[in-house]
């Protein structure tokens, strides 16, 4: 048995050494100005973009009245500048494809009673699915907080996340020289003035003609429960919101969502503001794609929300 352990340990050590050499070598090798490591697998993303800008700008020690969080529907749907107009400071911590496990990690790691009094969590059915998300790779690469990045990398047992984390270390350093998304405004918000063209509408009609219901993952509900629990212990008010939806939103998924969150709403006595049934939003005027509001839509929705929250 001792010999087997010796063999396994020596093989593991050799493997780790070679793995690190391979990673380092690939990171040093450049092809057309891009480190070769990014060519080896499609999940690697170079540091930069809106997530990078958002977490670089976010300061855990400075307080905001409201923190918005969730997927791209959050960081494209809630503009802190509009909330400034009513004297409410806010910051948007949404990120692309963010799912419940990551939202829970971000909230528990970055938010407490000292830096916020309210969290608005954008609820969307896709946040409860269990597929490997772009959000994991994006966050591991672009989060400023190293501990949080390692937590996200280790929460799954998938080597892809370890690779992404190692690549993050190989390209360490956070500075403002990196490419930032052109639509990024400030305090986490991304703005789009685009309007949906008739061609896009027709294309989306065709694409969403079939049932696009998601598989709800019970783990997602457990994470929502842990978020509610964290907020309760930190004395932060958690408000759940589903922002307006386009004609391509699956009502079947929405029913599943409502059914799944009902026990948590009751247990923690949470407020849930559902704008998915609000018919005053038109897909062609207020959206630029199947899921996201354009800036006209954002202004209308945010003003409505401010009123409903009594701010």
């Amino acid at each position: 048995m001792g010999q087997l352990l010796k063999y396994l340990i020596s093989t593991c050590l050799c493997t780790i050494a070679l793995y690190l050499i391979l990673n380092f070598g690939m990171a040093q090798l450049y092809y057309k100005g891009q480190p070769f490591i990014f060519i080896t697998n499609n999940y690697f993303t170079e540091k930069g973009g809106d997530t990078y800008a958002r977490f670089l700008e976010f300061n855990k020690k400075s307080a905001s009245n409201i923190i918005f969080t969730g997927s791209s529907r959050a960081y494209r749907g809630y503009d802190p500048l509009i909330f400034d107009e009513v004297g409410v400071s806010s910051f948007n911590l949404g990120s692309s494809g963010q799912k419940m496990p990551n939202t829970a990690l971000i909230i528990s790691h970055l938010l407490n009673s000292e830096n916020t009094s309210k969290i608005i969590l954008e609820l969307y059915p896709k946040g409860f699915t269990d597929d490997i998300s772009e959000s994991d790779f994006d966050l591991i690469t672009n989060l400023k907080d190293d501990k949080l990045a390692v937590k996200i990398a280790l929460k799954t047992k998938d080597p892809r996340f370890i690779n992404t984390y190692l690549t993050r270390l190989l390209f360490s350093g956070f500075n403002t020289d990196l490419p930032i998304d052109a639509e990024y405004v400030s305090r986490g918000f991304c703005k789009s003035d685009r309007v949906m063209s008739d061609e896009t509408y027709k294309y989306l009609e065709l694409r969403f003609s079939e049932d696009n219901s998601n598989n709800f993952n019970i783990q997602g509900i457990r994470h929502l429960d842990s978020i509610a629990n964290h907020c309760k212990s930190e004395n932060i008010e958690l408000i759940l919101v589903t922002s307006p939806v386009s004609d391509f939103y699956s009502q079947k998924n929405h029913s599943k969502l409502l059914l799944s969150i009902q026990p948590i709403l009751e247990d923690y006595n949470l407020r849930y503001l559902d704008y998915s049934q609000n018919t005053s939003f038109s897909t062609k005027d207020h959206f630029y794609d199947a899921s996201h509001l354009n800036y006209t839509g954002v202004k209308k929705f945010n003003k409505m929300l401010i009123k409903d929250l009594g701010l």
Binding site: T11, C14, T15, L18, Y19, I21, L22, N23, T40, N163
Partner: peptide
């Protein structure tokens, strides 16, 4: 003997398609 299998394991970790 010493290197080839750790090298294969390292390549799996690095270039594998874990879907």
């Amino acid at each position: 003997k010493l290197l080839i299998f750790p090298a294969l394991l390292a390549a799996i970790g690095m270039f594998g398609y874990f879907g």
